[in-house]
Amino acid sequence: MGKSKKKKSKTPEQQQYAQFEQKHEIKRPVVRNCVVAFLVGGTICVIGQAISYFYIYFFNFTEQTAGNPTVATLIFLSMLLTGFGVYDRIGQFAGAGSAVPVTGFGNAVISASIEHRTEGFVLGVGGNMFKLAGSVILFGVFSAFVVALIKTLIMKWVGV
């Protein structure tokens, strides 16, 4: 068992260098990144809504049930873009705008499985597929559980 971490404080020389180095660093363009992420993420959501309407209009899905085929279609598109090597360029341009929607989640799983094809299907693809997405699934399910628990307890107390 590793010892609990004692915070490694920097020596004065290290602190001085850190300040010095900061001046030379090319800073991330935060405002530009935020604006582009907003626009690209919004565009992906508009495309998703259009796909949803497509399913509602032409097929026998209600607003409630059209969620499933819409997400499936978006992940299919993300698979095509990842496979063609386009999604990483979109990602470099858009940042969070392409990483946060479900297409980004699809890209994480798909890129990992493409990458590890060379190690075989079971240990390579299967074992490494959720390398990036694993924490999303774990913490998503766990926080849903916690929130549901809190809601149930509150409803019980308020209901009584």
Partner: peptide, 11 residues
């Protein structure tokens, strides 16, 4: 990350 992953690299 895997080469096709769409993460954004800083400058």
């Amino acid at each position: 990350y895997p080469t096709e992953y769409g993460g954004q690299k800083p400058p």
